[in-house]
Design a binder for these strands. Structure first.
Lengths: 342, 342
DNA sequence: TTTTTGTATGGAAGCGTTTTCTTTCGAAAA
DNA sequence: TTTTCGAAAGAAAACGCTTCCATACAAAAA
């Protein structure tokens, strides 16, 4: 039943060409006549041929695989990031090996030089402070390394300007009446990794507010793990501190969702006693009428993949930094017309 | 600088044997003299040799890789599960390709027959209802499939008896004074996957309580996502419902942690107004004095890996089911001597 | 002692590709 | 017309393993 997969030889035979030609078609080599290429393509289609990746690897001396090391905290973020990465890599017939940092101990194992993560052609690391854990802040590999959603002067980096995002949030919220509040996202793993994303967003927010003549007292910042329920606790906390109206900037859309849940439970009304601004720009925010700072996550992933492919192909220049900026999307939750009317 | 990795030929030469012998040593073939094996092993050590996995794959016709498909909800659980799986697979020089179900859309992609997940020698699937999503409830692959932390009559399965765990929880808590409460864990992804783990634990708890002549009203069950903060909201909820003492069974240790946090904030005292029993038996529960139903997670993962290796080696028998039972660990949070004394 | 059996080993063949080396052939240059 | 050259394509040589086959040799059986 399980008939063997067709090989390059069978394709060559059916297309009446040599295996070299088939290989050239496979690798988009220029010197193949159009007519021949089509014949080979047709043969591949009728046989249902797909090249054996392992054979490629041993023959080519490369693995055609890229390791992606990433924490798995905000799953939706990483889902979208991978989307962008995969999109680019798939075009070049590269595969992805995923190394989720499920725990610090697993992380250490990945970083041992012998580890699987280094058997590949390159490393895509999505974690702010990972390098800090390493001796000399350098990944123990000869392979190219590119950081994504993280920055280091030492490696190519594609990163988000989180501080700017916070400032944009401030600029948008500052002119509303009422006090300013913020929810900072902080995971346990963040401390290990010295991940400062959540912090930067809030710092930017505070800076922006100061520029607008407003302030953000320490007590108006609620630090929470990354969970919907954290948003609920945050709103409870704020309500104990001050009277409405509240202007709340959350370090992530998910937390804003929790705030919305609690708003409902408390019988408040968004746009009246509460203005709420998220961060991420996840698709579902549209349906919830949540204003948010949309991150071009997929593009950031794609760019990181491009940087890495460059390096794999031998590019030697000094580290390149690609900065990305969030975009403000205004929806019901911060609609100007819904001016405070209590 | 980056000198080529040594090959099997260099090892053979240094050890003064043929490459066949080196390969045999590599694969634990029995017919190698002890003395020869040691010589080869020594040569490998001095050269720092490690076999090229790609070459192995193309020569052997196998990939020596196993796909592990898993949701990434309770990271600690999966971290430990992988630990167990890897331990066994590593012994046989098998590698793991991880496919975290970050989102339903990615899940679908994995399940396409052509997908990477099927390029490997076998599939280890850790997800209750994944099969339900598939046409015919069958994974579209010729490769062996083993379920872990999930059960299907169709495939080899290594699974936890969650209902029993709930019953054990009831048996332990029932004799304490005060009403019974429970926190059920439920993720959005669970619904997609028809994952009933959280539900089973609570159902078992209810059954056990009934057997002991106690009851668990619907209103005493708080359904929460998997987060620490969910535990805090749950306790708030319970405190609105009833007076102490509370006996709380949480579907996961993490939620119990949240309960503990809120207990402190509310100025309650564990062992007096509150008895608390978790589920998972994660290492950190010891330090927190949290009683819990410890799951043999690593063993379950290891057994699943063994079942899969069996199949990969050609075992053809009908599906095997391996049931695992949690163990009750009693600590301060449900200590008998701390009898309610209000 | 001679034959048989079995174990340990070396070496060649083969896995499915990529890549290099030729060879062929037609068109441009002489 | 002859020579030169480049493009297209076939054939062969890697790539680093596993596996099979043949051989050598020692121990067991005759």
């Amino acid at each position: 039943m399980a008939k063997r997969k067709p090989t390059i030889h069978e394709v060559a035979h059916l297309a009446r060409v040599g295996i070299g030609t088939v290989s050239r078609v496979l690798n988009n080599h220029p010197s193949v006549r159009h007519e021949t290429r089509n014949r080979v393509l047709a043969a591949m289609a009728t046989l249902g041929y797909s090249p054996n990746p392992h054979a490629r690897r041993v023959a080519g001396g490369k693995s055609y695989t890229v390791s992606v090391v990433l924490p798995v905290a905000s799953t939706e973020f990483y889902s979208r990031l991978l989307e962008g990465i995969e999109h680019i890599l798939a075009e070049e017939r590269y595969e992805i090996a995923l190394f989720p940092i499920l725990s610090p101990s697993r992380l250490e194992r990945y970083l041992e030089s012998r580890s699987l993560a280094y058997q590949t052609d390159g490393l895509l690391v999505s974690s702010q402070g990972l390098a800090h854990l390493l001796p000399d802040q350098k990944f123990p590999t000869e392979r190219p390394v590119v950081l994504v959603d993280a920055y280091s002067p030492r490696y190519d980096s594609a990163f988000m300007d989180n501080r700017l995002g916070g400032q944009m949030a401030a600029q948008h919220l500052a002119h509303f009446p009422g006090a300013m509040f913020a929810i900072q996202v902080q995971e346990e793993l963040d401390e290990v990794l010295k991940n400062t994303v959540g912090q930067e967003r809030i710092e930017g927010f505070r800076e922006g507010l100061q520029k607008a003549g407003k302030s953000l007292p320490k007590s108006h910042v609620f630090v929470s793990r990354f969970s919907v329920e954290g948003g609920r606790l945050a709103l409870q906390h704020f309500m104990r501190q001050a009277k409405p109206p509240y202007n709340i900037f959350t370090g992530a859309d998910l937390l804003a969702l929790g705030v919305l849940e609690e708003v409902e439970r408390q019988g408040l009304e968004v746009g009246k006693q509460i203005r709420l601004l998220g961060f991420d720009g996840h698709p579902w925010t549209a349906a919830r009428g949540l204003s948010t700072l949309a991150q071009p996550i997929e593009e950031m992933g794609a760019e990181a993949a491009r940087l890495l492919l460059d390096r794999i192909r031998g590019y030697k220049g000094s580290p390149r930094a690609r900065r990305f900026e969030p975009t403000l999307i205004v929806r019901r939750s911060t609609q100007p017309q819904g001016v405070y009317a209590d």
